[in-house]
Design a protein around this nucleic acid. Structure first.
Lengths: 205, 205
DNA sequence: TCCTGATATGCAACTTGTTGCATAGGCAAG
DNA sequence: CTTGCCTATGCAACAAGTTGCATATCAGGA
């Protein structure tokens, strides 16, 4: 399992409660690893039982109390150990690709709206990434950046640079998807117009 | 669930047994949707109970008998219905990205081998895709292509073009990953050398 | 004859992930 | 003062996916 490790990374970057973790999983971390709050609370319990994290009750005014989790020494060694283990060929799940192939047995034109919807989503996410990049890594020098306060061992800039590298990956991924969905849309439009004019005629090619 | 629908698409492209499906999920379909044979057998049972597929016992010589599954009318309508439903924002699971971020809390150099191993895998897969593209879609005209025999409704070329569009997506994805992993490797090497010379000195920038 | 390997199907136990619901404190608007 | 919203935590039931094992046919080689 890697949810434990994703939580360890997030808590090392900054300690927080299950609720805060759940919100991070809707934003930064969630762009390459998703989890619901139920999952997070359950896994945090297990991690606490395993001694990977320490808990601290925090009284708050104007909002309910919370439990703040932070990574213990044994949690850190679990993470560094995991870094040395090979990851298996990560299982892919591209539902839209299944649909595109399935469109051959239905109406290809019916998929156009859906593909456009996905493309809009990827455009939005790309814009969000680029804004984050400008904010956190833009310009020159080491400007203030959230989530970089609580670094433990190693180069304090390493976290910053590695987060930037991951973000560049997200940006590259969104750009690739937007371009591919353009390609898919062109194919669907071509098939739709060919269907209207009759399956035998294909004046373009 | 989408495994049912991935199986429907595969069986519509060509009827086959659970075992044959399992092998397809290690190859073509498996590149955007993974499943083990246990999962496939279990889901085929359910699909049979739901009347989505028809079964036929096939006697074979020089190998054990098999059950050949094919999509029923109700299975086809289930697929076309699914095509109209919106897919939700597909959950992402990029374990390597978690590791890259986690490398800030361990030794960044330790990840280099792992990243190179992944990059080799992506290079191999890209080569495999490109070979498949040349074989099935290369040159001009409509050359013979496996898996395109049993098309039902619609343009018989639609399946071919849509499979090509999905394959182009796979190619774009692998190229993007290879380039990004180059980027990650450069970052890791930079951090590793900075670490050797001391965290304070950074002669390059 | 026994062993290996490919084909072929499947069960059982377990881990993960999802969905729906429940609870509770405090704030602000109506 | 009730209703809705955000914070905060959690259970229970279910669905999906993984791991390990079991079985059987048939071919070819040791």
């Amino acid at each position: 399992m890697a949810l434990e490790h994703a939580i360890l990374v997030s808590l090392l970057e900054k300690p927080g409660s299950g609720y805060e973790l759940a919100r991070r999983f809707e934003r930064s971390i969630g762009y390459f690893w998703t989890a619901t709050h139920q999952q997070i609370y359950r896994v945090l319990k297990r991690m606490e039982a395993d001694g990977w994290v320490d808990v601290r009750d925090v009284r708050q005014q104007s909002r309910p109390d919370k439990k703040e989790y932070s990574v213990s020494a044994s949690g850190l060694s679990a993470l560094t150990g995991w870094l040395h283990e090979p990851v298996q060929p990560e299982s892919v799940r591209h539902e839209l690709a299944v649909k595109v192939r399935g469109a051959a047995f239905g109406d290809p034109a019916a998929l156009i709206d859906e593909v456009e919807r996905h493309q809009r989503m990827h455009r939005d996410r790309l814009a969000h990434y680029l804004a984050g990049e400008r904010r956190d890594f833009g310009g020159s020098g080491t400007a203030g950046e959230p989530g970089a306060e609580a670094f433990g061992p190693g180069d304090p800039d390493a976290g910053r640079e590695l987060r930037h590298a991951v973000l560049r990956g997200g940006i590259a991924y969104e750009r690739m998807m937007i371009a591919w969905l353009d390609d898919v849309l062109a194919t669907l439009h071509r098939l739709a117009s060919r269907r209207r004019t009759g399956p035998a005629s294909d004046p373009a090619s």
